[in-house]
Simulated scan of single mutants.
Amino acid sequence: MAKVTHEMTIMEVLKLDPGVAPIFMKHGLHCLGCPGATMESIHDAGQVHGINVDVLVNELNQFLESNA
């Protein structure tokens, strides 16, 4: 099973499982289809939006593990 990392883009994670979309949105990353979602890493997006990326990545991985 793939594991989400800080270096992955939002789009890479969405391709693993589109069900993660609400997790991104809960953390303030609402533009899931914008060009930034395909180009910048989760880490970079987190810095721009003031998000605790460790918490976000942990929640994404927990979701993916529970749906494996």
Rank of each mutant, 00 (worst) to 15 (best):
E12W: 03
L60Q: 11
L29S: 01
Q47S: 14
D17C: 00
P35L: 12
Q62Y: 09
L14P: 00
M1R: 12
M39Y: 09
V55H: 10
L16M: 15
S66L: 10
H6Y: 08
G19N: 07
D44V: 09
A2H: 13
M8S: 09
F63N: 02
V20R: 00
V57E: 11
P35N: 09
I42L: 13
H30F: 14
K3D: 12
V57G: 05
N52A: 13
V53R: 04
L60V: 11
G19P: 03
I42W: 08
T38L: 05
T38R: 14
A37R: 01
N67W: 02
A21D: 03
A45H: 00
N58L: 11
P22E: 06
D44E: 14
G33Y: 08
T5H: 11
G19H: 08
L16G: 06
T5S: 15
N61I: 07
Q47N: 13
L60C: 07
H43G: 08
N58R: 15
P18A: 10
I23K: 02
N52W: 02
L32S: 07
A21G: 01
Q47T: 11
M39C: 08
V48L: 13
N58M: 11
M11K: 14
I42E: 03
M25A: 13
N67A: 10
E12G: 00
P35F: 04
C31R: 06
C31M: 07
F63I: 01
